[in-house]
Write a protein that binds this DNA or RNA. Structure first.
Lengths: 255, 255
DNA sequence: CGATCTGTTGATATCCTTCAATTTTGGTGG
DNA sequence: CCACCAAAATTGAAGGATATCAACAGATCG
C-alpha cells in the first residue's frame, strides 16, 4: 500500500496524529483523472475547488501575447492547489497536466474546517504554502541570475529533492517525463539552450535522462553548478517549541 | 490623519468591521525604525517575529556565491512578513530596507488568534498571501520571458499600482527611491541595461524619474510594453458569496 | 567642498536566441 | 512485427540582446 503523498509531505512539518492522518487521507478519496497536456484550471476563470494532486505531474503557467509560455512552478504528488482560491474572483494563471494525472477535489468548507479545528494541520498547510513561496523565490533567483546550465541543473535537483520528500524516490533516480521545450519554458530558455545544457551534462557523465527517467550520476557536481541548497524546502519542519505548542493544544482539545 | 496602510490593503479583500479595523490598527503600535540599507532579517537566521511594514520600502533578496544579488520582491507599506515564520527553522532569504523604514512587530500568538477567532481577517491574510504569491509569479514571467525594457516597465507599473492600493498615491506619481542597480537586481539585469531602458523611456517622454520620484507620463504605453495586467493583484477582492459567508459568521459570533 | 555613490556613455565580448535542417524516438495501425 | 507518422531531440550557423569593462559626469551629503 502506497504512502499518501500529502501525508508524506506534511509529515516533514511535524509528527501527525492518527486522526490527522486519517483526515488527510479522507481528503484524497474524491479523485478525478486527467490525460496529459490538458488544463485543469485556466487563467481568467473562477478558481475551481481546492484539490490535492495525488499522482502525476502538472504545472502552473502563463502565456504571453506572442504565444511564448512561462512555466511558474511544478505540482508534484502531495501538492495542493487552490486551497484558498475561493477568496479570489479569477485565476491569474493556468494549471495544466504534463502527464496523466489524478487530482482529488476537496470542498473549501473542509479546508476552512481544518484551519479552525485542527491547529497543527492548519499550521502544516501554512508551512506548505511557505514552501511553495520559497520554491518560487528560488526560481526567481535561478532565472534572474544563473546561466543556462545553472538553471537546468537547479531544476533537475529540485525535482529529485521534491520527489524524495513525498516518498517517490529513495535514491538519485526519478520519473520525469518532460520535454526539453517544457524544461525551457520553466527555466526561461529555448529548447535549444536546454538541449545544449543537457548534452553537456550527459557527455560529462553527470546525468542519465531518457524515456522520462532522470538519474543524477554526479550529484555533487550538479548541486555545485546549480548552487542548490535544499534549505529552502524547509524539510526539517517546525521548531521544537512550536511542535510542543501544538502538542499541548492536542491534549487540551482531546481531553 | 493617515489611513493605516494595512487596513487600506485588506479593505480591498472585503469590507471590514470597526472591530477588525481597530484590531489591525492595534497591531501597528509597536513600531521600530530602521535606517536605509540594513538587514531586517538575514538568511540562515531564525525568523524574527511577524511584522507589518508601516512606512518606507524594503526588499527580500538572496546573494549568490559570486556576490551577485537577486531581489525577490519588494515590501511596501501595508505588507506583512514572517506572519508564519515561526513555523520554520531558518530564513531562506534576507530582508533589507531600501530607505528609512518603520516596521511594527506582532506576536505570533496574536496572528494565531486572528486565524482562529476572526474568520474574515484570517481570510484577508490568506488573500494577502495569495497576492504576494501572484506578485512572485508575475516576476517569474517577467524575468523569464520579457526584454529588458519590458521588465523595467513592468516593475514601474507594479510599484504604481501597489502604492495606489494602499493609499500612497492617487495619480501616476509615486515615491520610489531606488537606484538603477537595485532595479537591476530586481529585474535580473545589470545597472547598465536598466539605465538604457530608463533613458529610452525618458527620451520618449513616457516617464519622469529623478530624486526618488517616479511619474508615469504615458501610462498606456508602459502598460503595453510591460504587458501589465493588474488582475494578478486581485484588488477586486472576495467573490460575493464568500463575503456573505463571512457576514453570516459575524452575526453568528457577534450575537 | 571634497569624497563617494550614482548615473551615463561607448566599445567589446558573450551567451543565448533564432532559423533551418536532419536525425531519432515513440506511438499507431495494418 | 513492421511501416509510417508526428513529435522530440540534435546540430550548425548567424544574429542580437545584454553583460562586461572602463571612463567620466553628476548628484548627494556630511
Amino acid at each position: 500500500m502506497k504512502i499518501n503523498p500529502l501525508v508524506a509531505k506534511l509529515s516533514h512539518f511535524a509528527v501527525l496524529s492518527a486522526e490527522e492522518i486519517a483526515l488527510l487521507e479522507s481528503l484524497c478519496v474524491n479523485e478525478e483523472s486527467f490525460p496529459a497536456h490538458v488544463d485543469i484550471v485556466t487563467e481568467g476563470q473562477v478558481p475551481r475547488s481546492p484539490f490535492v494532486l495525488t499522482d502525476g505531474l502538472a504545472c502552473r503557467y502563463r502565456v504571453l501575447r506572442d504565444g511564448r509560455r512561462q512555466i511558474l512552478t511544478f505540482l508534484v504528488p502531495g501538492d495542493t492547489s487552490n486551497l484558498h482560491g475561493f477568496l479570489i474572483q479569477a485565476m491569474d494563471h493556468s494549471i495544466a497536466t504534463l502527464m496523466p494525472t489524478r487530482i482529488a477535489m476537496v470542498q473549501w468548507e473542509i479546508v476552512m474546517g481544518i484551519t479552525t479545528g485542527y491547529p497543527r494541520l492548519g499550521g502544516a498547510l501554512w508551512w506548505s504554502a511557505l514552501q511553495e513561496e520559497a520554491i518560487m523565490r528560488e526560481r526567481i533567483v535561478s532565472i534572474g541570475r544563473r546561466s543556462a546550465r545553472g538553471r537546468i541543473a537547479y531544476l533537475l535537483c529540485e525535482f529529485v529533492w521534491r520527489q524524495r520528500a513525498v516518498g517517490l524516490s529513495n535514491d538519485d533516480e526519478i520519473r520525469l517525463p518532460l520535454t526539453q521545450t517544457e524544461l525551457g519554458d520553466a527555466a526561461g530558455l529555448t529548447s535549444v539552450a536546454v538541449n545544449r545544457a543537457l548534452q553537456d551534462f550527459r557527455r560529462n557523465g553527470w546525468i542519465k535522462f531518457s524515456r522520462g527517467r532522470l538519474t543524477l550520476l554526479a550529484t555533487e557536481k550538479l548541486l555545485d553548478i546549480a548552487q542548490f541548497s535544499q534549505r529552502y524546502l524547509h524539510l526539517d519542519g517546525a521548531p521544537t517549541p512550536i511542535r510542543r505548542y501544538f502538542d499541548q493544544l492536542d491534549r487540551a482539545g482531546g481531553a
